[in-house]
Design a protein around this nucleic acid. Structure first.
Lengths: 234, 234
DNA sequence: ATCCATAATATGTCTATACATAATAAACCC
DNA sequence: GGGTTTATTATGTATAGACATATTATGGAT
């Protein structure tokens, strides 16, 4: 019986707590012992228990409130983490050569919804960029982007014929927050022509907007080729 | 000059580091000072700096490697966190009454791909459930689910006419991991009929599979009504 | 009984110190 | 020089102790 002493790392404690939840020793809704007691039981410092429980709370397995204590989440609103890669990397991950083609680039008056979401002053133009991302020579995604020139200094002068606008922005325009919205749309005639599919084909669409503080920097609409899937791991 | 001393909380330090990155004092690719030096500069303990930098690394802003140090991520592979609520909660968030209708429920032989992804023994049946989620009386999402009975004890006996299979599983079947996959599909005739839309309509689809350890528990295909959007915040 | 101040309590965080671990740089040998 | 061993270094983590903070429970006054 060479019983190796149980490792008292925070990961080990997290695993142990998770096991007790899974095995229904602590069913959903249960209050679990407080940190001090658990530290005593596991023979470690309270900070170590805290680290483990905090991690589980972040992933939605536990609910924690000061003074109230820690309980196993009733309906585990699981949180999935999505890494949003550059399309270049996404294509590379498929093992295909990446290509980029600038379709159009103009400083022009945006449609009302775009004007509003960029919070532009009245009668102000924005930089409109349309581009095609290619995987192994075939269309992968169509990007339709509007950039607020005031929020992205240098964008008007930047050469975007070889580098995608997204990559340029990532490197040159600071941004703090953003919103993503996924949906399914039917391909309109123009999009279908660019992506080489029939009009009406169901396409996966990503609408993305990014802010620098409170100032909108850019909004983009990305239509992926038919069959595209976005994968996440819980 | 009642200058309030700068708070030396880890959040404050995270904010300060983030500001330096945004203001290009530490541009992408830069190595930033090590924890000990930053702790000295900010006048706090190294553990506090560690907490702040770890948090930024988790959100993809920093790259950290032992001995190598900490650098500002070149291409900020931003990580977005998606909370996956129960459909019931999703509908409730829209301010509409939730409804649930079980369409069919049978122990039957699954198609080959489902059989494979549930890792069933040869010639084994699985529990097949089809159900409609309603928002304010109109169809919201169509769920097509297969459950591995061996991995979800009690599922065969459970009454799923009032409670959705997903909710039953969440409460009764332990699971540890899962995969999510989002895509856009054209509605087939059966789905269109249930959702009350025209065949061929572009629909947002979620494919979900959950495991208990390494054992597959269930796979589900959820087709949302036309116009559905999934929002995330970076 | 109701309302309000106060005490009690569990989590949240900071500090200082120590050791572990991974990865690089330097020293070394052949 | 090429390859291997040995420091060195920055992050990763554990610990004990302390105080902060948010909430709940309690007790008292009205």
């Amino acid at each position: 019986m060479t019983d190796t002493p149980p490792p008292r790392t925070w990961q080990a404690i997290r695993a142990e707590v998770l096991a007790r939840i899974r095995h229904r020793r602590w069913p959903p809704g249960t209050m679990i012992p407080n940190e001090a007691d658990l530290a005593l039981e596991f023979g470690c410092a309270r900070a170590t228990v805290n680290r483990a429980l905090r991690d589980l709370a972040e992933s939605g397995v536990l609910d924690r409130r000061r003074k109230a204590g820690t309980r196993v989440a009733e309906a585990p609103v699981r949180r999935a983490v999505l890494s949003i890669p550059l399309i270049r990397d996404e294509v590379a991950a498929l093992g295909q050569p990446y290509g980029y083609a600038l379709l159009s680039r103009a400083l022009e008056s945006p449609p009302a919804p775009v004007h509003a979401s960029l919070a532009l002053p009245p009668d102000t133009d924005a930089l409109h960029i349309r581009a095609l991302h290619l995987a192994g020579g075939t269309p992968f995604a169509l990007e339709d982007r509007w950039i607020n020139p005031a929020a992205a200094p240098g964008a008007l002068e930047a050469d975007m014929t070889t580098l995608s606008a997204n990559e340029w922005l990532v490197r040159h325009a600071p941004f703090t927050e953003g919103r993503l919205s996924f949906s399914a749309i039917a391909a309109d005639a123009a999009t279908a022509a660019q992506l080489g599919c029939a009009p009406g084909t169901a396409l996966f669409r990503l609408d993305r907007s990014t802010l620098d503080g409170t100032r909108p920097v850019t909004v983009a609409q990305i239509s992926y080729r038919p069959g595209y899937r976005l994968d996440m791991v819980i």
